[in-house]
Design a protein around this nucleic acid. Structure first.
Length: 840
RNA sequence: GCCGGGAUGGCGGAACUGGUAGACGCGCCGGACUCAAAAUCCGGUGGUGGCGACACCGUGGGGGUUCGAGUCCCCCUCCCGGCACCA
């Protein structure tokens, strides 16, 4: 067993000149303090642009500074750190920054509750969380730290916004909005979940308010099309975005109404136009409101719909009323009734639909309830008879009962019908999106002020560049949900930049998703006070690896893609997409459910680090599950990886201070190494190969850890005292340290130094596989008879097929199964198996 | 309803391109050390049968393709996630 302490030769140029003692016990507090102090002092993770070197930009979704880290943070940041450190060792010039998504509602809520200014609360939290992140040994370039609530950050957001206003990509409009009565603010569609506020759960009301919008729909096509060119994104995220944007191709068709403006509808099935038997409009449709004035039953219906609870499911009963309005079919001239119906959404298309009950489930259901006619105009191509009493036929097919279009197939008919509509000026082909323009105004205090001044003479005037940033006053008291800005004339009473007359500044702030939409770019030019982005953006962007949670699959990731295109079109960056590769990490659970305060199953990262150290925390989180899967917390598992680190420590300690001197005779006498030593050398190479592939290509880090554990176990099994054995053991341990260093950086830092290395392990190159050492002298060949495993053969690696055939046929065990049977064929897989197929 | 993802020992998970199912870890069992315990170390550990060499069964269920299927194809069950009257 090793003695208590050993002297370690360390270079004073890199390590402290004080004599280092290697304790034979793993004291993680000291280890982690030492490693972190080294990285700080050496400025290890500072990123410097260098066009001569290949860059790697690794980014994890920055946190909201809630006060303390939870296990989900530990997981995502550890995953990002493993990737960044690995790429660094491969020789890439790595940028791995961190910052704070610092605006948002919780700060205001805390302010109301505890009487602390939101800014103060936020910055305290940031300080606490920064310490926690540092305690985890995450390798960030802290010089580039971004805090979105600081004027030097959001001023560029304001600057960009004023440009977007001038381009018409940002505009103000009075619109019905989702209003949260509890938070007293407008929510984007994406923030409404099942008719309720995503934050507080209050039922959403509809309200008419003047809002600023960003014209994301102008980029809808590109946002969809480019999803195809993001092979580094998980398919499910791309699918979610595709569905969210919801592109539909079809036609806009107008139905004339005597004495009124025509009714416009959108349909994806112009081929069914000849089967329209009525029109349906939303309860909020202007035509419905108008009809309600003269018809009490319509008014009563609208009232009923308005009062109905926002039903989350589409299974709600179909209700409607005949408005009495009559429309004219654009091609046949038939007179069609216009119904107001609860299933028609005002928010999509024109809020009106042409109803073809024979070929649309909803129209069919509605027609059933109100006894409206059902006319079949599409027949299945296979001539099956359609039973329209049982349901609608919604497939494509051949037109029937459609005048000049009868006999055509759906797609040809659609084209011809659109052509006819164009000829008579009653329609045109059209593409619609589920996606709406992004409402970015929030009636909240703690956010980026909208840089607009409202003047009665000049309208909404963007704040000129010279007056930017519009600084949010931070020393305020927040007493209720109403924004203090709205009671601060010193903030909002300003002269109009255009005419100089009295005007009022906007007191709304931006949705916090605006800040997180471009922070990834600002890290490249964080200290530029003259421009939003500079040349450095061209060097670093796009982000090579982005890591984050699936909860942002739609919102944040779609907005960031949108902003990337805005920045590109502003000439600020070249890349068309912000994130080349996206890793969506799974959640951390305990007892099969997500950790949450209400369930009482939360494991605190702080306690974990105090009890076992950051390396144990990181190692467990990496080892317990592949990054994309949910991770089941296990206290025993944590103890298990801690045990592994202790064993690793002990093995290195024994290596540094062996009890007995090696016996060099074997080498001197030219005797070859023992088989176990050769095997250890081979296993070392196997581990390099496996870990490199697992971290680099496959992005499954749990199996990489398993491979390192196997190697360390193998070291423990070779206890020969020859110098060859010592050499092989040392090489294996060094390799294990290198391979483990991205995951457990502190212990590997100290052990590497203990093994006598001058350069810090973080600055070492990733090991390269020695393909020759990987070769085996003997391989095991599995012998199957009719696909069933019957024997294992140990054969020289160079043995050819014939040799293996005869060895297999002469194997006693195999012969038992061949008795009295005829061999029909051999299947041979080199170095793997031989399958002898015999007649049954 | 539609679109994804999944189901493998007592548990977390391996098995990447169809080729030894269960790597690695946890737990459990046995042993060493100890007066004893903890810690640590060593060995074993899918199920059934057998003293044993071994044999049979086994990756949610049913079928298929193949010399060979956890992996591919068809059908079904259950679980998780997203969307959900989008015309």
């Amino acid at each position: 067993m090793p003695a208590a302490a050993v002297v370690c030769q360390a270079s004073p140029s890199v390590f402290p000149s004080t004599t280092q003692q290697m304790d034979d016990r793993y004291q993680f507090e000291e280890v982690e303090r030492e490693a972190q102090a080294y990285w700080d002092r050496a400025r290890t993770f500072r990123a410097v642009e260098d066009p001569a070197r290949a860059k790697f930009y690794c980014l994890t979704m920055f946190p909201y500074p809630s006060g303390r880290l939870h296990m989900g943070h530990v997981r995502v940041y550890t995953i990002g750190d493993v990737i960044a450190r690995f790429q660094r060792m491969l020789g890439r010039n790595v940028l791995h920054p961190m910052g704070w998504d610092a605006f948002g509602l919780p700060a205001e809520n805390a302010a109301i509750k505890h009487g602390i200014a939101p800014g103060r609360w936020t910055y305290q939290n940031i300080d606490a969380m920064r310490d926690q992140l540092k305690g985890l040994g995450l390798g960030y370039d802290w010089d580039r730290e971004i805090t979105t609530s600081r004027p030097d950050y959001y001023r560029w957001e304001q600057w960009l916004f004023t440009r977007l206003v001038k381009k018409g990509l940002a505009y103000k409009r009075t619109a019905p909005v989702n209003w949260c009565p509890t938070d007293q603010t407008v929510l984007a569609n994406e923030q409404v979940v099942d008719g309720r506020c995503w934050r507080c759960g209050a039922a959403i009301e509809r309200k008419e308010i003047a809002q600023w919008f960003l014209r994301i729909t102008a980029y809808a096509d590109e946002l969809i099309a480019e999803l195809e060119r993001l092979p580094g994104w998980p398919e499910r995220v791309r699918t979610m975005q595709r569905n969210w944007i919801g592109r539909s191709e079809g036609a806009d068709i107008t139905f004339e109404i005597a004495g009124r403006a025509p009714l416009k509808v959108f349909t994806t099935r112009p081929d069914t136009l000849m089967g329209v038997t009525y029109l349906a409009i939303a309860a909020e449709h202007p035509l419905a409101l108008e009809a309600a004035r003269s018809r009490p039953e319509v008014a009563a219906f609208l009232e009923k719909v308005r009062a109905a609870p926002a039903e989350p499911v589409g299974a709600a009963e179909k209700l409607g009323v005949d408005t009495g309005v009559r429309a004219t079919h654009p091609l046949t001239g038939d007179v069609l009734p216009v119904w107001a119906a609860n299933f028609v959404l005002m928010g999509y298309g024109e809020g009106a639909v042409m109803s073809v009950p024979a070929h649309d489930e909803r129209d069919w259901g509605f027609a059933r309830v109100y006894g409206l006619p059902v006319v079949q105009v599409i027949a299945p191509v296979d001539d099956t008879v359609v039973d329209l009493n049982a349901g609608a036929f919604t497939g494509q097919g051949r037109l029937t009962n459609s005048g000049e279009f009868s006999g055509l197939d759906s797609s040809a008919a659609a084209a011809l019908i659109i052509q006819r509509l164009v000829e008579v000026g009653r329609g045109a082909s059209s593409t619609r999106y589920r996606l709406h323009d992004w409402s970015v105004s929030r009636q909240r205090y703690w956010g980026t002020p909208v840089p607009i001044i409202n003047c009665v003479r000049c309208g909404s005037v963007p704040v000129p560049d010279r007056d930017l940033p519009v600084v949010l006053p931070e020393e305020v008291g927040v007493h209720g949900v109403r924004s203090p800005l709205k009671e601060m004339p010193e903030f909002y009473r300003v002269p109009c930049p255009s005419c100089g007359g009295a005007a009022e500044r906007e007191t709304d702030t931006f949705d916090t998703f605006v800040e997180s939409s471009w922070y990834y770019a600002r890290y490249t030019s964080w200290n530029n006070h003259e421009a939003m982005l500079d040349d450095r953006a061209a060097y670093w962007l796009p982000v090579d690896q982005y890591v984050g949670g699936v909860e942002h699959a739609i919102l944040h990731l779609l907005y960031a893609r949108f902003f990337n295109k805005l920045l590109r079109d502003e000439g600020l960056i070249a890349a068309t997409e912000p994130f080349s590769n996206l890793l969506v990490q799974g959640m951390v659970q305990k007892g099969g459910v997500a950790m949450s305060k209400s369930r009482g199953n939360v494991v605190s990262p702080e306690e974990l680090v105090t009890t076992y150290g950051a390396d144990t925390a990181r190692l467990f989180i990496i080892f317990a599950a592949p990054p994309e899967q949910s991770l089941e917390w296990s206290d025993e598992g944590v103890a298990g990886v801690h045990r592994f680190l202790k064993r690793l420590w002990r093995l290195v300690a024994e290596e540094v201070h062996p009890g007995i001197a090696p016996t060099p005779e074997a080498a001197v006498n030219g005797v070859s190494e023992s088989e176990s030593v050769r095997e250890l050398r081979r296993q070392t190479q196997v581990a390099i190969s496996k870990v490199t592939d697992d971290i680099g290509r496959r992005q499954v880090f749990n199996t990489a850890v398993a491979a390192v554990m196997e190697l360390v176990n193998a070291v423990g099994r070779v206890d020969e005292r020859t110098s060859e054995a010592r050499d092989a053991r040392r090489k294996a341990l060094e390799t294990a340290l290198l391979l483990l260093s991205p995951i457990a950086p502190h212990i590997t830092h100290v052990l590497w130094k203990a093994l006598g290395h001058e350069r810090a392990i973080v600055d070492e190159m990733w090991p390269v596989v020695d393909e020759e050492a990987l070769l085996q002298e003997f391989v095991e060949i599995v012998v199957q008879v009719n696909g069933k495993l019957r024997a294992r053969l140990r054969v020289p690696a160079h043995a050819d097929q014939d040799e293996i055939h005869s060895l297999a046929l002469n194997d006693a065990q195999v012969m038992r199964y061949l008795q009295g049977k005829t061999v029909k064929r051999f299947i041979f897989v080199p170095s793997k198996l031989i399958n002898i197929v015999v007649q049954q």
